[in-house]
Simulated scan of single mutants.
Amino acid sequence: MHQDLYNHALTLLKQLISTPSFSKEENETAGIICDFFTAQQVPFERVGNNMFAKNKYYDTAKPTLLLNSHHDTVKPNKGYTLDPFDPIEKEGKLFGLGSNDAGGCLVSLITTFLYFYNAENTKYNIVFAASAEEEISGVNGIELVLPHLGNIDFGIVGEPTKLEMAVAERGLMVIDCIAPGRAGHAARKEGENALYNALDDINWIRNYQFQKISPLLGESRLTVTVIETENKQHNVVPAQCKFVIDVRVNELYTFEEILQELKANLKSQFAPRTTRMKSTSIALDHPLVKAGINLDKGYYGSPTTSDKALMPFPTLKMGPGDSARSHTADEFIYLDEIKDGIATYIKVVEQVL
C-alpha cells in the first residue's frame, strides 16, 4: 500500500512542479490539489489559495492533529541550468522548483492523510491543510485558513529537515530604521551627516550580544542588511539615512524585550514591520516528539522560520528533503526521501492516534 501512496505522491508532485506557484500566484496549484482530492473522493474546502480536508469520521468532541505544508514557491534564481518547471527524474533525484521546498513534504503529508482518512475509533481527528504564501509569510496563507479548521490541538508542519525533528524555531522580526540629520554642503562641512549617525547605531548593533543563550537555538541576533540615503549628489550631506535590521530571536526573548533594548541604545527612529513571526517550541515530552524519538529521530532548533510561527498550538516541523537545497539552482529531492517521508509520517501518526 505504501508503494501505491508513493506513486500517487510522485505523480502529484510532478504536476505541481510543472505549474508555476509563486507566492500570491498559487491559484493553479491550489486547483491541482483540489482536483487530486476530488479524484480520491475525499471532500475538501478551499479558502483563497488554501485548501483543507478532514478525516471521514471527524468528531468535534475529539482533539485534532493538523498536517500542513505549503504549495507556493520562491521564483527561480538565475543559476538554473535546468527548466525549473520540468520535473526531471535523474540519478535517483527529482529536479524542479519546489521539489524540495516543500513539495516532497506536501505530497508525503497528503498521502499520509489519505492513509488514515478512513480510520475509525481513533483518539484524534486528522485535518490536512495545503497553505499558500508561506515563502513571504503572507496574510492570505495559513492565517487565513486556520479559523476554518475548527479547534486544533497540535500539528506537523512539513518542511525539509532530513526527517529530523525541528522542535524549536527562531522568531523573525524586520525593523525599519531612520537616522535623522541635517542637509548641508559637503565642501563647507555644513549640516549633520545622517549616514554617520546611522553608522554609530549600526556599530552598536554589530557588537551587541544578547545574554540569554538557548540550548536549542543559540543566541538571538541583530543583523543590518540594508542601508540607503535618498541623496544622489556627492557634495550634499544626507539629511536622512534608512537602514533595516533583521532580528532572529530565540525562545528566551519576546519581541517586546528586543524592542526595549533597541529603544534604550539607538538614536535612530525605528519601527517593526510585523511582530507576527514569533519564536516557537514544542516540549520534548510531547507525544509527537516522543513518537519521533521512538523512531530514532534526532531533534534540534531550526534557524529558519516557517508557518509554524503563525500557529497558536504546539507543532513539530519535520519533513523529507534538506533545507540546504531550498531556494538553490536546480533544486531537487531524492526519490527515496519521498518514500521515507511517507513511511516516517505514517509511523509517527500511528503512535499518537
Rank of each mutant, 00 (worst) to 15 (best):
L16M: 15
I17S: 07
I17Y: 09
I17M: 11
S18W: 06
T19Q: 11
T19I: 05
P20W: 11
P20S: 09
S21R: 13
S21F: 10
S21V: 08
S21N: 11
F22A: 14
S23D: 06
K24W: 06
K24L: 01
E25C: 12
E25V: 07
E25I: 06
E26K: 14
N27F: 14
N27L: 15
E28G: 04
T29N: 14
A30S: 14
A30H: 08
G31I: 08
G31Q: 08
I32M: 10
I32D: 02
D35K: 12
F36S: 03
F36G: 00
F37N: 06
T38N: 11
T38L: 07
A39Q: 14
A39R: 12
Q40L: 12
Q41F: 10
V42I: 15
V42G: 04
V42Y: 01
P43V: 07
P43R: 13
F44E: 04
E45V: 07
E45R: 13
R46L: 05
V47Y: 10
V47F: 08
V47M: 08
G48M: 09
N49I: 09
N49P: 03
N49V: 10
N50F: 12
N50K: 05
N50R: 03
M51S: 06
M51N: 03
M51T: 09
M51E: 03
A53W: 11
A53K: 04
A53I: 04
A53L: 14
N55D: 08
K56V: 05
Y57K: 04
Y58A: 02
Y58F: 15
D59T: 01
K62T: 00
K62V: 00
P63D: 01
P63I: 04
T64R: 00
T64Q: 03
L65A: 03
L66W: 01
N68Y: 01
S69L: 00
H71Q: 04
H71S: 02
D72N: 00
D72T: 00
V74Y: 12
V74D: 11
K75H: 07
K78E: 13
K78Y: 06
G79Q: 04
Y80H: 14
Y80N: 15
Y80W: 15
Y80T: 11
T81Y: 07
T81D: 10
L82F: 05
L82A: 05
D83Y: 06
D83S: 13
D83G: 06
D83V: 10
F85N: 04
D86T: 11
I88F: 05
E89L: 02
K90T: 02
K90M: 06
E91P: 00
G92W: 07
G92N: 08
L94F: 04
F95W: 13
G96I: 11
G96R: 08
L97E: 02
G98F: 06
S99E: 01
N100M: 10
N100C: 14
D101W: 06
D101E: 14
A102R: 04
A102L: 01
G103E: 09
G103P: 02
G104C: 02
C105Q: 11
L106N: 07
L106Q: 13
L106Y: 08
L106T: 14
V107G: 04
L109N: 05
L109G: 02
I110T: 02
T111N: 02
T111G: 01
T111M: 09
